[in-house]
Design a binder for these strands. Sequence first.
DNA 1: AATGAATGAGAATTCATTCAT
DNA 2: AATGAATGAATTCTCATTCAT
Lengths: 203, 203, 203, 203
Amino acid sequence: MDSPLQTAKAWSRSRRGKQPSDGDARTRILDAAEELFAGGGYEATPTARIAELAGVPKGLVFHYFPRKIDVLISLVDERTVVVEEEVEEEAEAVPGDAVGALSRLARRLPLRASPAMRRILFREADTHLSVRERLSRLNAEIIRRARFALELALPGGRGDAARLEAAAATFAAVLLYQESICLLTGHHIDPDAVAELIAHALH
Amino acid sequence: MDSPLQTAKAWSRSRRGKQPSDGDARTRILDAAEELFAGGGYEATPTARIAELAGVPKGLVFHYFPRKIDVLISLVDERTVVVEEEVEEEAEAVPGDAVGALSRLARRLPLRASPAMRRILFREADTHLSVRERLSRLNAEIIRRARFALELALPGGRGDAARLEAAAATFAAVLLYQESICLLTGHHIDPDAVAELIAHALH
Amino acid sequence: MDSPLQTAKAWSRSRRGKQPSDGDARTRILDAAEELFAGGGYEATPTARIAELAGVPKGLVFHYFPRKIDVLISLVDERTVVVEEEVEEEAEAVPGDAVGALSRLARRLPLRASPAMRRILFREADTHLSVRERLSRLNAEIIRRARFALELALPGGRGDAARLEAAAATFAAVLLYQESICLLTGHHIDPDAVAELIAHALH
Amino acid sequence: MDSPLQTAKAWSRSRRGKQPSDGDARTRILDAAEELFAGGGYEATPTARIAELAGVPKGLVFHYFPRKIDVLISLVDERTVVVEEEVEEEAEAVPGDAVGALSRLARRLPLRASPAMRRILFREADTHLSVRERLSRLNAEIIRRARFALELALPGGRGDAARLEAAAATFAAVLLYQESICLLTGHHIDPDAVAELIAHALH
DNA sequence: AATGAATGAGAATTCATTCAT
DNA sequence: AATGAATGAATTCTCATTCAT
């Protein structure tokens, strides 16, 4: 199961059973940074603490990543993938089943990234261009897929284009932020319920 | 116009035409902090720059705010108000006009805060408890109002409670994050279109 | 009862029943400083805390004491008196009763000062000339009296002058430091036992 | 000669002829701190001045000692040793020669520490727990040894236990404080004279 | 590649002291 | 005399980054 709903624990287990101090030094540094950036934020995380958690000497961090910001850039580069083309989507899409299509999208975001990385993606997008760019692409991709799912599932010219666009954007907003908002406010949103709601609205 | 959509410029103009270095020192410090925290984030803003922008000596910042975090806490305390009781809502609500009620809610968030303060509210909620608490309350209040608007506007047992809840939460999510997501991705969401969508879904 | 063995509580009670915030501002400032200097040391005590404890505005401290050091100087000046001439000593001295004479000296140091002031006298003597000078005078006075007591009580040329001098100095050392050493190490020394010891030694 | 009476100069010469900027950086920092703390006190010594005297950059002080207080703690830990077991004491003790035993104790305190460290031990004991604890142990050890010396030297039940205890405590007080009191008041006490006095008192 | 000492710019915070009212 | 805001130098502490080994 590779769903965004899986726990952080499950995610790391799914990564070939790595132990905390597994892998080469570079990997351990990125692991540590991922955890710390997600927890306290990039600015508030000293490189020394990254090295400490990674179990490597401080100097080695700068051997692999000349500037601190390079750690963040590398994390985003290597550990978040926005899946922009997937053949299966058409295959799986069942005409008429809008709810099913959106639900599948919710369950399988076009994003390969750990919960921690998703957290970082939102946290640091404000300040760091490369992060923002990645998040932006993810948002666009979700909207594209939601639009596709709705178009396919609701054939015919029914519903004007503007409403469809709003529906797609709404679904994307909810998907992207449900995790953040839950962390912040403790208030859960059930993507399936939203999917159903939106599908219903387009009838 | 007191809408959350007004520009930052308009907001500050509406505050009795104050000039950059208007007001007493404490106010100028908060003004400066508001601007800098919104722009670069709390962590990345040195107190020295706050003092500089406020036109006061460094030491005076400490005089009013013993710790740097107290500046942020005071900002949130004094410059964001979640309006939790409003009589007009019932008055304005027109039975049957769900779209109008939601639109009004979008246009007049139960939040009295400058655009900069709203930015701060989202940015720093991750890390600072007092900020998160305020945001949490705002989220709850928006959901409460959206639920109220939809209940009133869609009389009768039509639509089960769960769907209503999902609709309210969805609307809140979109309202809260449209600003952030626009800043981050450049993608606008029209609250009115979402209002219409959601209202339609509950019929 | 004006013995150096009295408790701090008893001392302040003996000062005309003053309440914590009694007296004029200047007195309250000195009261506060006495307590704080005794507790944490002069260097570690900010004037702001003195003002706070005294219940006066910060500026007032500097009205009465232009520099911080003046607070300490005034304390020592006004609240420690080395009693250098006392007629009674001869009157009370009973020839032959060396132990009694020393005991009386221990019980009634030629020092009018609260326990807190005595603490300050030792703590700050290292660094501040005026304090050291006062302590030095106290030491000399105790030695003078101890010598006198022993001379009187042990008439005749018995015991050479050097031994008498050592005895007086020893007694003074014990008297002056018993309080400090007790605070530091928790180890009590009974002045009466020392008096007896020393008197015995001179026979 | 390793006596506590040796001068500071002699002490440092005895430490393998080190020059002011000898040794590694950590050692030089401790050397500088030792000198400055002894001279002006811990509170009054800025870490910057320590670095300056040690000839190292400011930041390096923090590298070895995360907090300023750690410099003091390390000094006390590493540069004061209370010698709590010595076999020779029995060997050297000559039954009947109480004066000699006490004299030897005075000349060879069970403390391995430079004069500067001894100064620090007394100065900072008031305020810093770890220092006080060390001083306390030293006091106890001196008393133990003095008692042992007197018991051994004055065989037989002569003199009750209480008097012996008072004698030991008195001798310890004089030993510990002669240095301080001399610095403060300029008044010397000859430990040998006190030893003789005390021994005489127990006959 | 690996190591951790070294560096110094700069951050937060402290605080004595001044001063206008 | 009373007040507390204002000032800025100094102090502790932080931390990214460099570098010799």
